[in-house]
Computed example of a mutant assay.
Amino acid sequence: MSTTADLIVALKKELKASQITYAALAEGLGMAESSVKRMLARGDMPLSRIDAICQTLKLDFAELARRVADTQPLLKELTPEQERAVVADKKLLLVAICVLSQWTPEQMTSEYRLTEAECVKYLVQLDRIGIIDLRPMNRYRLKLSKAFRWQPNGPVMHYFREHVVLDYYGGDFDGRAETLLLLQGSVGKGIAPSLVERMQRLAHDFARQHHSDQKLPEDKRESYTLLLAMRRWEFSVFAEMRR
């Protein structure tokens, strides 16, 4: 959500772009120029005053808020509290995964047993959590970066380990463009971090390709789940047999 300070910074930019001087603004607000300068310099004013300045600029307040939202840095991960809110409701988690894939509300309701009212309700919740910026006509802007990931030991990954891992690996991985590789080996201590970095680049490539291909017709796209992992680990049954 936009803070008052963010809104005032955006207002200053709009005033400059519109070539409206502080003197002209003061006249429009019925205030002294010095008071206007002081008010804008403090970076704090009531929303009613911000709305009055918007009217002078002939700018809708909602549009100003959207412009501020567009300039906010995208999140690379959520807080534990945000993740707990997401996994607290299975349907909310479903909608969260859908928005990560940039699905429209129409796609969600056509693919899953979600009513339009339910879909809107969950989009509103995701807006409150901070994952999306919900806009008119139930369109939204994703507030997560392309490098976004769930916290490794957070609530979502805990849910994944408990409910999803066996379901995912229960498949045969023998379909078109499917594969499952299991490799074990010893590598130099200085090499392992570079292998992880390469895996992260592959994940980023997958995410970029996903976003790029959203412009393709639905019948030209297929859903895939890429799971990458590497850790220092030995099967416990084998470890028990070590000397």
Rank of each mutant, 00 (worst) to 15 (best):
Gln209Glu: 13
Leu144Arg: 00
Val95His: 04
Ile53Asp: 03
Val95Cys: 08
Gln19Asn: 15
Pro155Thr: 06
Ser186Ile: 08
Arg67Asn: 10
Leu227Glu: 00
Trp103Thr: 05
Arg67Gln: 13
Ser35Gly: 10
Leu29Asn: 05
Pro46Leu: 08
Gly171His: 11
Tyr224Ile: 01
Ala10Leu: 06
Leu144His: 06
Leu78Gly: 04
Gly170Thr: 04
Val87Gly: 04
Ser194Asn: 01
Val164Ser: 07
Val86Ser: 08
Thr225Gly: 02
Trp150Val: 06
Trp103Pro: 04
Ala85Gln: 12
Ala10Tyr: 01
Leu123Lys: 07
Lys220Glu: 14
Arg135Met: 09
Ala17Lys: 15
Ala32Trp: 08
Ile132Val: 07
Pro105Lys: 04
Arg38Tyr: 10
Arg232Gly: 01
Gly28Leu: 05
Ala23Phe: 15
Asp174Val: 12
Pro136Met: 01
Ser236Pro: 15
Glu106Lys: 11
Gly188Leu: 06
Lys12Phe: 06
Gln209Pro: 08
His210Asn: 02
Thr225Trp: 04
Phe206Gln: 03
Glu81Val: 12
Gly43Tyr: 05
Pro217Glu: 02
Trp103Met: 13
Ile132Cys: 00
Arg231Gln: 15
Glu77Tyr: 08
His211Thr: 11
His210Thr: 09
Leu59Lys: 08
Met241His: 14
Leu15Gly: 05
Lys121Thr: 14
Lys143Asp: 01
Arg135Glu: 10
Trp150Ile: 00
Phe173Gly: 02
Ala207Arg: 02
Glu197His: 00
Leu180Phe: 13
Ala5Arg: 10
Pro193Ile: 01
Arg139Asn: 13
Leu114Gln: 11
Tyr224Asn: 02
Thr115Gln: 11
Tyr140His: 06
Arg141Pro: 03
Lys146Ile: 15
Ala203Gln: 01
Leu114Gly: 07
Ala207Thr: 00
Gly175Leu: 03
Asn138Ile: 12
Leu7Phe: 03
Arg38Asp: 07
Ala62Trp: 12
Gly130Asp: 02
Thr179Phe: 09
Glu81Arg: 13
Ala203Pro: 05
His211Gln: 13
Ser186Lys: 13
Gln102Gly: 04
Leu228Lys: 01
